[in-house]
Design a binder for these strands. Structure first.
Lengths: 168, 168
DNA sequence: CACACTGTTCACATTATATTGAATTTTCCC
DNA sequence: GGGAAAATTCAATATAATGTGAACAGTGTG
């Protein structure tokens, strides 16, 4: 019988695949994300079938650790989906193809936490400042705080709108 | 003539100043910019009067190199303005207070170049791909390229809108 | 034109971030 | 439960970004 190993055949990347993945790496850099995220997402984006962690390790020549951590981040962003195949213990991954979802996940994971943290700091500071109405530059500081709070509020409010501007 | 040195009195930062600058440092981190940019902008934001490079070096305890490079970046983003005072050879800096301008400058400097680069790569790839209509996975790759080009076009088009959403 | 003052540059040091791979944990198949 | 496959963790390492400061260049002043 003909040996059937097509599944594990080490698929080398063609020049087009290489280049498209390169574009995703660049997008990752634009977002200040590790290049491995771009590579992994790009590889999945280019794969008709779902891939396992080990597929990614082999094709991208990255370590298991990188693949594992990269996939986790992509999962929490919502940029990859996981699937289970009967009779296969391994997790299978595919690229999320709705840009809007990815954008929303990115904002939620990488922007929202900063916004919230800033909120806390601003609130605490504002209280403290109002408790020191006699300090030298009170008026001036109060003005700057107000301005900063305005910026923050405004940024916070338009944040959720961001991803809705992307077409369905 | 009386020697006039009051200007160089080493103003220490109060706790409020410290904390507000800390908030700007955090914002810088959110945008993946060097912390020194946050510090410098924050210091200027907190200063009623314009400051010189040397003022910033002294108050923030950073090197002249950092201050010089940081100010340059902030200038190209449009986050600081420069002023000249008669009888003073030094450049004086103040913080730009229009958030919209800063946002527009940031996008222009830190996002647009990536977008343009991606554009070039996509265009070149698309041509190459169309010259190889007989390659194995042509249909599939063509589909993915189309999708990617769609994303890119869309992202590129909403980019300029971003900063307009900030209030005047 | 010599000097002092201002700001820039850039090789190097420092710090932060990402990646690796071996050890560990989890899972589930027998 | 024993054991092997799959995935995760994390200390060590490699890589990249940021900061430093001494040397340099430019500019106005006496």
């Amino acid at each position: 019988m003909p040996s059937r190993v097509e599944e594990t055949s080490v698929q080398k990347l063609g020049p087009f695949e290489e280049e498209i993945i390169g574009i995703f790496v660049q997008i990752a850099q634009m977002l200040s994300l590790p290049r491995s995220l771009g590579e992994i997402y790009g590889m999945l984006f280019l794969s008709k079938e779902s891939l396992t962690l080990d597929d990614l390790v082999q094709r991208l020549q990255i370590s298991k650790g990188s693949a594992s951590q990269g996939l986790r981040q992509l999962k929490t962003i919502g940029a990859v989906r996981t699937h289970y195949k009967t009779g296969d213990r391994r997790e299978h991954f595919t690229a999320e193809m709705e840009l809007r979802k990815i954008a929303a996940g990115f904002l939620k994971e990488h922007v929202e936490p900063h916004i919230q943290n800033t909120q806390l700091r601003l609130d605490a500071l504002s209280v403290e400042l109002n408790n020191s109405p006699t300090m030298p530059a009170f008026e001036f500081l109060r003005d700057r705080m107000d301005r900063l709070e305005g910026w923050h509020r405004h940024g916070r409010d338009i944040l959720p709108l961001m991803s809705t501007f992307l077409k369905p």
